[in-house]
Write a protein that binds this DNA or RNA. Sequence first.
DNA 1: GCGGATCAG
DNA 2: ATGGCTGATCCGC
Length: 1079
Amino acid sequence: MPLENTMMQQCLMLEEEDENSNTGSAEFKDDWEEDENWTDPQWEDHLCWSERNSVAAGHSSNKELPSVNGACHQKGLVSRMMLNDDKAGMEGLDKEKINQIIYEVSKGSRFYENEKKKDEQVNKRIQEQYDKIQKINESQLKQGLEAADILLEELERARDLSYTIVHIDMDAFYAAVEMRDNPSLKDKPMAVGGNSMLSTSNYHARKFGVRAAMPGFIGKKLCPDLVIVPPNFEKYTSVSRQIREIMAEYDPNFCPMSLDEAYLDITEYIKKREKMSDFERSYICRDSQNVPLTLCQCDLNRTLREKVFSQTASDGNSNSVLSHLSNKCSHFENGSCSQCVFTYSCTSSNNSAGSEISSKTTEGRSSGQMVGEQNLHEAECFSCQECGKICPEFRLVTFGFGADESVREMRFRIEQRTRLTASAGIAANMMLAKVCSDKNKPNGQYRLPNTRDAVMQFIKDLPIRKISGIGKVSEKMLKAIGIQTCTDLFNQRSLLYHLYSPISFNYFMRISIGMGSTTVERDSERKSISIERTFREMDKPSDMYDLCRELCHALSEDLREEKIKGRTVGIKLKTVAFDVKTRAYTLANHTSDTDVIYEAARGLLRTEIQTCAPQPLRLRLMGVRISSLLHESLCKREKRQNTITGFIKQKSQKQKVEQSSFDLQAVGHNIEPQFIEQGVDILQPANKVDLLASKPTVDSKVTKQDIYKCHTVEDESLQAIETPMQSQDRTEKEDPRIVDVTVQDSDCRAAVQDSHCRAAVQDEDCQAAVQDVDSVAIVHVEATAYSAQYENNRTAVFISKDSCVLKEKVNKDDRTGGICGSLLKSNKCPLNSFISAKSLSEQRRDSGSNDEINYFQLGDLKEMNLINLDSKSSDSSKQSINEIPQTAAEDVTNTFNRESSIYQADLVTFLCPVCNKNISCANEEEINLHIDVCLKGQEHIDLNQTGFQTPDYSKVRKSTPHKTNVNRTEENSNQTCNESQPHDSNYHRRLSSTHEKNQSGSKQTEPFTLSREDDSVRETVLSDGKEEILGLICPVCYMEQRDQDLDIFNSHVDTCLSKGTISQILEEQRQSEKANLKR
DNA sequence: GCGGATCAG
DNA sequence: ATGGCTGATCCGC
Ligand SMILES: Nc1ccn([C@H]2C[C@H](O)[C@@H](COP(=O)(O)OP(=O)(O)OP(=O)(O)O)O2)c(=O)n1
Ligand SMILES: [Mg+2]
């Protein structure tokens, strides 16, 4: 209370300043006073209230927090746990009693303890807020007030009351659908969801305090008769589609906010409507929504409306009939404008559709008694063209003009179509419309006139909590400084100016004068995709990794389905104490690859497990999210990111070599060492070309972004690499080795595993292997070189363990030429390389050139300063070794011995040539695995991490913040039923194994069961029960093979090869993918 | 860019 | 005994 007093003192100061400042900005003040009812008793009231509550100055800074939400009345129950009765249909409840029950059920639970913790944190924030206030002096307050008034003046000038915005919201949506489809629920309190969480409840249940986001078991306590029905997302989606079809007719650019609500701008529509005929404003109304199944159940306005009109019109008395028979439809709400002009009834006779519609419109059917009057001629029955059944009795209702009638008509049509009711709000902006739609809920509408007076009056006593964007916490924080209504927001504007960010301040100020967005537009593209699951306590890391992989798999499927890729991978962990942690890692390039996502996620997860050790991490939820999304087609070609060839090519010297081809003789596998050597010999001369001779822009696919400044030897090389070329000419002069990077269309994969270095490549052939710390060989062979003769045929090159090419040292000069194959310093390099060819025609299409190009470069990491052997180059990565982020790739070692290796020491640091970071690795395998992951998941870090994006910090917060994206997969948006049978069809589709909590009473002792991915190819004969690791990827079927034994792997490849051509296999895969999608 | 928190539905 | 899931935004660092 003392705090509150002090607050109020501040408020008083504010008010005083206000008085002063009003003289300062006379123009605005006048305006405000005139139009704003500044002298309105209500405003006076507020001022008085402020003053009343202000006491003599109290300045101690650690006051008791003011009681908010009346928490003190509810012993023990923190405010955030108390019932929110802000929802429609929850007025006048016995809150005390309900909260008591909630408390009884909740106390002592982990959830509750966590809520208490969070509540304390909020209280701390409030205390901080208070401390901040203490530091504000008078002149600052005055300055804040001036700033606020300037802003308000600006806003006021921009106020536009010319729009008619509608917010439509279905009533108790999920519950209403379930009640519609199961009428026995109609008179019962019911909710949709499961025992652990409810999505929503019907209005009957709301009377008991049962509401959305409440656990089912608490709902049951509040209302023992509560019926809980599982959700059925397909139905909701389908209904949503129906209502959106209708909405689109009123505003084709309407903005759906969720399955059940949307904003519409009907400004234009209303004008258009003025010219609409009675027919066009008339809709069929079924006399009864519950007709026997023997009669047509279809939406008559869809199936019959046109027909009725055309037949009526053909009778030549179209409008006259309607206007003549302007019977009021009394049962129809508000009947003031909407009129029933036509009735139709029919016996069960099965005659063809009536041809004399006009005859069915009888004048005798006057006011109020449209129904119940006698059937007309039996011969006049309509039969539905869709279901063939006879149409039930209906009337025709004509709606008037203007916003009210338009919206009424829309709601009417929605009800006719779906047998569900909607509520609507009509106002000058979205913020107000949203508030209005709740006013006459359910099944009602409310329009706020588009006048400033009406708006201000409406806003005046409106609790801020009603405004979208102000939730429980904001309410509490604001209440702590005496703000409960929108008027309070205005009065405390100076304080708000000092306490909150410009964005929030702007947001509050707009609310305070009833302003909101008037631009109803669909949200831009989605910004993230995620999946998360709650399960019974989990503490075994292996289980966690398994689950994590499944989540990643599901996520990657979703990404591919939407044809997008992401760059930032994040995980979310919720401990059994409900502590939520999120971790994220941004890759250098976009991906939708399960493995890449998983490696990143696993790295993050591992770090958390480590951080927790030796205590086990005890989880109740895990999630994976991916953001920084980009449409597939806008992402850089995968080839470039997936081959170390492509990568090094950009980072080291670049060459655009003369086009030369060579004939790849070896088909099948086991390339002989001499073959490779031969290739090198063949290519070397041809590749020695003057780099400057070929202009970077010769190839149409070269874009500026593809051009990098690449030094190879200089110390500052790494910085240089990270800088996209500013001026082509200049850089070219600076360094003759700067070349363009050609984007090519291929799909390469690289994987390094165990002590093997291996690359598997598809489409075009790129292959690379890294071995040893100080040397690397890069090969990039354009498939066209040899694909001609193998068009539509698999071309596989297999370098067996034995045939690994060894080479003493890669000279700088050697970079100019080469052929497929890879060579390394160490002779323990077991290298597998696979090349599959792309058809010649495809190649030509891709390259845009008839001439084939062979790129072959050999690089030496050491020479290129990419291996960090001294501290100098580590500077270039801008990170000290101690600050190395734990990237996904760094985690690769633990694939093999997840737990044990965590504590292994003796790490070697090397500078990864791909991600350009210092990496601590225990051994070569780790390095190789790291590079592999980098290659798969990262691309040109130079380009993406140079931070060239212009910061676009707008101080204007959206009037409706936190607006959710509507383009998401909405069927997935809710999951409140985690019973044994999840009811979201996608729930099953997305995760192949069920980690969900077991149903109560389940005897299963394990928290979950794991099943392998449905990918049967993975369950190959090669599997010998070894722990799954990053497998070899078959170049033919592209399936990862778990077995590491090269012989077995080779035989797998042989088997694959014998099955058919690559194209056939690919086709099969495509087909099966399609089939899977359909399923 | 990351992590925590808030908000909506 | 049982306390969801998806997505967005903002803030502070
Ligand atoms: N925490 C929440 C809130 C809502 N929903 C779902 C179920 C609701 O049926 C639907 C629409 O949300 P509304 O807020 O519009 O609530 P209702 O439509 O159920 O009720 P009403 O709009 O009548 O208040 O979204 C959910 O899954 N979880
Ligand atoms: Mg609703």
